[in-house]
């Protein structure tokens, strides 16, 4: 059974997101397992995205459809969903893949509902069995996993960042334009103002490395040592619920069942005891390091490596040692 797969390839700061390339590589793999077919990437963005599009061939796209206009530079759920739906209606794929970034989590359900399609969100594994796609996704924030089959055609799948590898091979994609059949003033919502919160750092949802701080830090001012370590190892700063509830860090930093679910390659938990709802949100991290003065803290039960000690001594030492390794 040949298959057609459409992948929404998300752009940020003039580059394809790693999570988008992961989706494309997974699409190429699934295409193989489903007996061949076609992978079409859909790219939406400002004027510069047309020049980026051919590079998607190396990650698995056979074809790329590009909708570019200055007013599409920034993500807008109403506009982007219309464009992805237009591409899907034209391509009639079996599967639509969208990276479950923050914007992707806004986009995927809109696309699915407009198509009348089933959605499997934040998927961490996919395989083909008996010609059918079997999906695994965490539920209860990772306290359990559901294995399921989406019954609709197409099916929409949002893919958890860092759960699948992005593999660059050779290949070129044929690029063609995707018509934009509406104007911004036709949309029911209008962006009045945008304030950039932080730039450069990946959001927790997509971060490859995270340094998280908990109650053990004793006060918001002490997060400076977390930020310094994060800076040296290229990590995004996270926080436990206790810390966010105390107002030490913004809610956007919260990792756990009531915050963000994360899957980085490296998760460093500093002064985090490891409440069940925190563990649920980060236990799919590939490597977990715990630094805590309490040797019985639950976090050590899930950590790959632990240091028992005073975080105010251990973390600055770690920052200093990393600087040495980097030759600073």
């Amino acid at each position: 059974m040949a298959s057609k797969i459409v992948v929404f390839a998300e752009v940020r700061d003039g580059r394809f997101k790693k999570a988008a390339l992961e989706c494309l590589s997974e699409a190429r793999k699934l295409k193989g397992e489903l007996g061949g077919g076609d992978v079409t990437a859909v790219v939406v963005g400002g004027a510069q995205v047309s020049s980026l599009a051919p590079s998607l061939g190396a990650y698995g796209a056979d074809r790329v459809l590009v909708a570019s206009a200055d007013w599409l530079e920034r993500y807008d759920g109403e506009a982007y969903s219309k464009l992805v739906v237009a591409a899907v209606s034209a391509e009639k794929p079996d599967v639509v893949l969208i990276a479950a970034s923050l914007d992707g989590k806004d986009l995927a359900p809109r696309v699915a509902a407009l198509l009348g399609a089933g959605l499997a969100a934040d998927v961490t594994a996919a395989k083909v069995e008996g010609g059918k796609l079997q999906i695994t996704r965490p539920v209860y924030a990772g306290k359990a996993y559901a294995t399921l089959e989406v019954k609709t055609t197409p099916q929409v799948i949002s893919v958890r960042p860092n759960a699948f590898p992005a593999e660059q091979k050779t290949g070129t994609a044929q690029v063609s334009p995707l018509a934009i059949s509406f104007k911004p003033e036709d949309l029911p919502s209008k962006v009045l103002e945008v304030k950039a919160a932080k730039t450069g750092k990946a959001d927790l949802t997509e971060a490859e490395r995270i340094v998280s701080g908990g109650r053990g830090l004793k006060g918001p001012e002490n997060f400076k040592i977390i930020e310094e370590l994060a800076e040296e190892i290229g990590a995004t700063v996270g926080a436990s619920r206790a810390v966010v509830d105390s107002g030490w860090r913004p809610h956007s930093d919260q990792v756990g069942q009531t915050g963000k679910t994360v899957s980085p390659n490296l998760y460093v938990a500093v002064g985090v005891s490891g409440a069940i709802q925190h563990l649920a949100g980060m236990s799919t991290s590939k490597c977990i390091v715990a630094i805590n003065k309490d040797k019985d803290a639950p976090i050590f039960k899930v950590a790959d490596y632990g240091i028992v000690g005073d975080l105010f001594e251990v973390v600055p030492r770690m920052t200093a040692e990393v600087r040495k390794l980097k030759g600073k």
């Binding site: 359990a144 050590f300 899930v302 950590a303 790959d304 240091i307 001594e313 251990v314």
Partner: peptide
């Protein structure tokens, strides 16, 4: 529905800085 894959017991590398 299944339980999450168990994480292998890690090691305490040591104490203090």
């Amino acid at each position: 529905l299944s339980a999450p894959p168990p994480r292998q017991a890690g090691k305490i590398v040591g104490e203090g800085p």
